[in-house]
Each structure stands twice: as structure tokens, then as C-alpha cells.
Design a protein around this nucleic acid. Structure first.
Lengths: 276, 276
DNA sequence: CAAATAGTGTCTCTAAGACAATATCAC
DNA sequence: GTGATATTGTCTTAGAGACACTATTTG
């Protein structure tokens, strides 16, 4: 044991070259589509947060929020800190989707980045402009395969439109890797990161766990269905959806009314240990 | 653009403190259990590779193979290089299970590690002793929950036995995080890494993709079933297993005979695009 | 009442698990 | 033939998708 102390005292890491490490965050929320008809339920769209870079490199390009890992914090704490700086709100959840370490991915030097998916629940989202961000905003997301098997990532915020093209590389543990054919003027390798985040998000939307992160504590089953449909870009029969989630939710005595049609019962997430 | 060049020229990353980055590999293979009865098919057990540390810190403790990330390589290339140095064989597959960055996880200083699961196929495994490894070997693995909800990780190689205790922390994208209650004298936070690797492996054994990585190009369905049963620690009816995998495999015209019973047809993996 | 969503019931089809039965080889 | 695995078939049950129908509210 004394031996080990002696060893550590004389040990120096400075002999080896070290990379800078960052966390980049793909922050998702659902936004409502407004409609003219007061009776129609508002549609839901998946959107993600991008920052317009205020400085070099990639000045004036859109990028993911993120920043450097500091000593004494975990990479999760770093990601949380960075996303909070940007939105002034804590995300509901934060999940790693892997380390991006391709040499040359950052023109500033040897910088590797751990990417995260984070989810913001309903009515908990703000956003503010940060230091090196001249602008920020939530972009509507579309991610689909074309006839050639390439994936098209489309992001839009009003007039602002981005369109990246990617190819599937390999798949592991539900997270698919992509290579960039056209970055669509997104900064760094962020198109690749966003594509990976979307496949991970879609994969875990099937077990409902991540669906709850997008919802308030109490919600109607139609709202829950809208969340899943917006993420997976599908549509299904309400009757079948209700049956499928029945084991994952619990009734409350409250209702949501005033929408020009029959009020809907509010439900809440059921903890796994509980019974019906 | 000229602006950006100027910026990059004056930009220096050396102002910020940087961590050392390593890759640690949880290398799995299947080993056969020998039996006295020549007629019985050999049973299969899941095993993983550990290295006995030859130097400080954790001298003489068992640890995962791994090493430092070099400039100009990706973390995947680093992991591949390290595992090849140890076994002199290329693994069939390599998949990241996340970055471990808890401050204090390595007594040598600020060192963060990306962990990987790698799989070695049948008849492709050797192993040699490396520089800082005084010994190395494949350990049989058992990983189960006890009545208190804690997870027990047991590793054994002949007389050598390790037993770690862990608690489930959180789950994201099929990879569960654990916290260590008792490291079972494994080095660093490697008990935590192995536990995460096992849940990831088990999760992806259900879609059969990873099963093929453990098998030679041609295999019997019973061999394939044995692989899945060894990984998931279950047993199922051969008839049901055959039906379930039928869409994922293709018949060949070859048979495996000479085992004291009816010869079994050899199958191969079916590529997703092909039809029956 | 009309329009819209909320919620229930039922039919069909498929997949999974249990189990029975047959096939084929080495000795 | 015996003992072992290989392989096929069938019964039952659970779940998913499709669809028809009823319930309830606001304007």
C-alpha cells in the first residue's frame, strides 16, 4: 500500500498528449401546431434546440448546444450545466448516445465530444441567448429515408431551413451511426450526432418510458398518443393505443374539459412495482 | 473564411485543463463445458477477459483490458488496438456502452474512460500476456439479482473467484447504469463497467444480431440456441426457438454429423434484404 | 343538433409457449 | 435396439391491428 502511494506520487500524466473533451446536447421538446378550428386538438411536432454560433469556427452556422468538460465534474453534469445555461431550465432526462472522436471533426484541434439526448417536458421550456451564441431556437424536425436508402434530416424554424443528407453506417445497442454525405451547413459533425440522437429517441419511444418525459404529470391518453406519433412519425388507432399503454398508466379522478367535445380523463405514469 | 483562418491560428486549447482518455474493453466469448458423455452436446458458458495488473495502481488486481487514446485515432480504433494487443485476434464486433467520467475513478488523476463491449467468435480466440499485465484469462460470468434487488456479479477461473455487488442506478437506451456496493476487488470502477456491459449484451441478444457474432459462419440451430441461452441465462423449447429465428437464418446443404446422434443441418445468417 | 373527441367491444391474424410425435445417426 | 439430438406439427393463449359503435361535451 505504501508502494502504491510512492508510485502515485511519482506518476505523471503530463507525458501523454490529451484531448479536450466536450458534451454536446440534442435537446428535444414537443411543440403544438395551432389550428383555426377551436374544436380540433392541437397537433404535436417534434423540435430540437439549435444555437447560431457567434464566433469562429463555423461562425453564423447552426450548432448543438455544448461545452467543455471541467475538472471535478462528470460528463453528465457538464451536459446538464451546458443545457441549463442555454435554456435556464433543467431537462427532464439526459441520456448518452456515445463519444464522437473522429480526428479532424473540430478545426480547433483535438476535441472529442460525448453526445446526449435530453428531453424537455411540456410547459417547462424557455430559452435565452448565451455568450457565444448570437441566436437560438427550436427547429421542427423531419428525418426520413429516401428511395436510395439515404437519410434526409430536415430542420426548419420559420424561414430558416436546413437539410442534411446521411448514410447509415452501423448499428449497436439501438444507436445507429451515420456518416455525413451533406452536412446541410450544420456546424462540425452535428448532423451525424442529430441523426444518431433521432434513432435512439425513436427506439426508446417504443417502450413508453421516454414518452412520459415529454408530458406533464397528468395527461390525457390522446396527448400521450400524440407524443408517440410525433416521435415515431406514425399514426395508429386510439383504441389500440389505449390497450397497449393500459399497464403503464394509472387513472386519476380528474378530467380535462372545455375543448368543444367530450372531456378526457387525466392519467398519470404508473410506477413499475404497483399493481392495478 | 480568411477570418476563420486567422482565428484558428491564434486559438489555443492549452489554456484549458484536459483529461486523459482511455478505452476499456469488456471482451466476451463463449466457452464449451466438457462432458464425460460423448453423446451429450457440450454446454456453453459466457466468459469475459480480465487482465491481472502488473503495476500500480491496483497491482495484482484483476482489471479490464484497455489503454490510452492516441492523437489521430478514434476511440473505436483505440479500443480495437488495445484488445488486439491483448488477444492478438480481432474481435468480431465492438460497441460503445458509454463514457465513465466520475471524478476520482482513477487514483492516477483525471482519467475518463469509454467502455466497449466486444465479441469474439468461435475458434478465433487466443490470448497473450502484455506489458503491464502479469497474467490474463477468461472468466466464467454469472450476473443475477438477489432478493434485496441487488445485483451479484460472479467471475470465476478455476480457483480464482471474484464477487462484486451492485445496485441499479438508471436506465437509458438499453444500457443500465450501476453503482458499486462492493467491487469484489476488481480494479477501478470496472465492476460497474462489466455490469453495464452485461445488461447491454443481454438486451441486444434478443434481436439475434449479436448472437451471430459468437458463432462461426455456418452453425446448427442448436448451437445458436445455446448461445442465446448462455447469454440470457434462460432455457427454451427447441421447437419455439427454431420458429422464432427462421426469418433470420438461411439453410445450407451441409450437415454436422459424427456426434452420436442425428446430424444437424448447418445454417448461415440471412442478410436483411434477401427473401426466402 | 352538429362536430369533434373520448372511450368500449369485437373480430381476425400472428406470434409465442407448451407439448407431442417422428426422424436419424453412433455405438 | 438404445440413447441422444434434430425436426415437424398442433393446441392454446396473448397481443396487435382494423373497425364499428356508443358517450359526452361545446357552440
Amino acid at each position: 500500500m505504501n508502494d502504491e502511494k510512492t508510485f502515485l506520487k511519482s506518476y505523471s500524466l503530463s507525458d501523454y498528449e490529451r484531448p479536450s473533451v466536450t458534451a454536446d446536447i440534442v435537446a428535444f421538446k414537443l411543440s403544438s401546431e395551432d389550428s383555426e378550428n377551436y374544436r380540433l386538438n392541437p397537433g404535436k411536432k417534434l423540435s430540437l434546440l439549435l444555437i447560431k454560433r457567434g464566433g469562429h469556427p463555423f461562425k453564423d452556422h447552426w450548432a448543438l448546444p455544448g461545452g467543455f468538460l471541467n475538472p471535478g465534474e462528470t460528463i453528465e453534469e457538464c451536459a446538464l450545466r451546458e443545457v441549463e445555461e442555454e435554456t435556464s431550465v433543467k431537462p427532464v432526462s439526459l441520456m448518452s448516445i456515445g463519444l464522437f472522436s473522429e480526428p479532424g471533426r473540430d478545426p480547433r484541434g483535438w476535441i472529442i465530444s460525448n453526445a446526449f439526448v435530453s428531453v424537455f417536458g411540456a410547459d417547462r421550456v424557455e430559452q435565452k441567448s448565451g455568450d457565444d451564441a448570437s441566436d437560438a431556437g427550436w427547429f421542427d424536425v423531419s428525418f426520413e429515408q429516401n428511395d436510395d436508402g439515404e437519410y434526409i434530416l430536415s430542420l426548419s424554424k420559420g424561414e430558416e431551413k436546413l437539410r442534411a443528407v446521411l448514410k447509415e453506417e452501423k448499428c449497436a445497442f439501438g444507436i445507429t451511426s451515420f456518416s455525413i454525405i451533406d452536412s446541410g451547413s450544420l456546424a462540425f459533425d452535428h448532423a451525424k450526432i442529430i441523426a444518431g440522437a433521432l434513432t435512439a429517441l425513436r427506439g426508446s419511444a417504443k417502450d413508453f418510458q421516454i414518452i412520459f418525459d415529454f408530458l406533464p404529470d397528468k395527461f390525457t391518453l390522446t396527448e400521450m398518443q400524440n407524443v408517440q406519433e410525433a416521435i415515431l412519425n406514425i399514426s395508429m388507432q386510439p383504441a389500440n393505443f389505449r390497450r397497449k399503454v393500459s399497464d403503464f398508466v394509472e387513472e386519476t379522478d380528474e378530467y380535462k374539459s372545455g375543448a368543444g367535445h367530450r372531456p378526457a380523463r387525466l392519467y398519470k405514469k404508473r410506477n413499475r412495482e404497483d399493481q392495478s
